[in-house]
């Protein structure tokens, strides 16, 4: 419930910002010529605003009716078992780590380290198995994207 509320509020703010910039900075209309840059963004930000407000109203109604029962079911933390919850954030952390690897170290280290690290830390696979899987995938990715398609990756490798 609470997260629904937060989402609606964020969407409303987004719609207001888009609409504000659209109307005041970009201009809606050039009379006699055509629509200006801000026209389409403002139109759709209005659509977003209306729908987000309607959603907000709906959520508030539910909150008032639902009461304690509604709150307990919707509490996001209790929806996930702890391991899954942590897993979700670990994935994001792994991805961030991977992106940084790509930027500073290059394609081959990124592929290898990301998969290897994942296998060991998240799946708890034995060392050798993790190595093999990581190595095979790294070789494939390297051959396809770097060797064949010649995409210029950053980093050292």
């Amino acid at each position: 419930m609470v997260s629904d509320l937060i989402l609606s509020v964020i969407l409303i703010i987004l719609a207001l910002v888009w609409g504000y910039i659209g109307i005041f900075q970009l201009g809606l209309w050039i009379p006699g010529v055509s629509a200006d840059s801000g026209f389409i963004p403002t139109v759709f930000s209005v659509v977003l605003l209306i729908c987000a407000v309607l959603s907000l109203v709906q959520t508030l109604k539910k909150l008032r009716e639902g009461g304690a029962e509604g709150g307990a079911v919707e509490n996001p933390l209790s929806n996930f078992e702890l391991p899954a919850f942590i897993r979700k954030y670990s994935v994001v952390l792994f991805c961030i780590f991977g992106i940084l690897c790509l930027q500073y170290l290059g394609l081959v280290p990124m592929c290898f380290l990301l998969i290897f690290g994942w296998m060991i830390l998240m799946n708890r696979f034995p060392l050798v198995r993790s190595f093999l899987i990581a190595a095979i995938v790294t070789v494939c990715i390297y051959l396809i994207f770097d060797f064949w398609l010649k995409i210029p990756f950053p980093g050292l490798f």
Binding site: F94, C95, G98, C111, I115, V137
Partner: peptide
């Protein structure tokens, strides 16, 4: 993880 790598690449 393989899909993650492919996504990044």
């Amino acid at each position: 993880p393989i899909i993650t790598v492919v996504c990044i690449v």
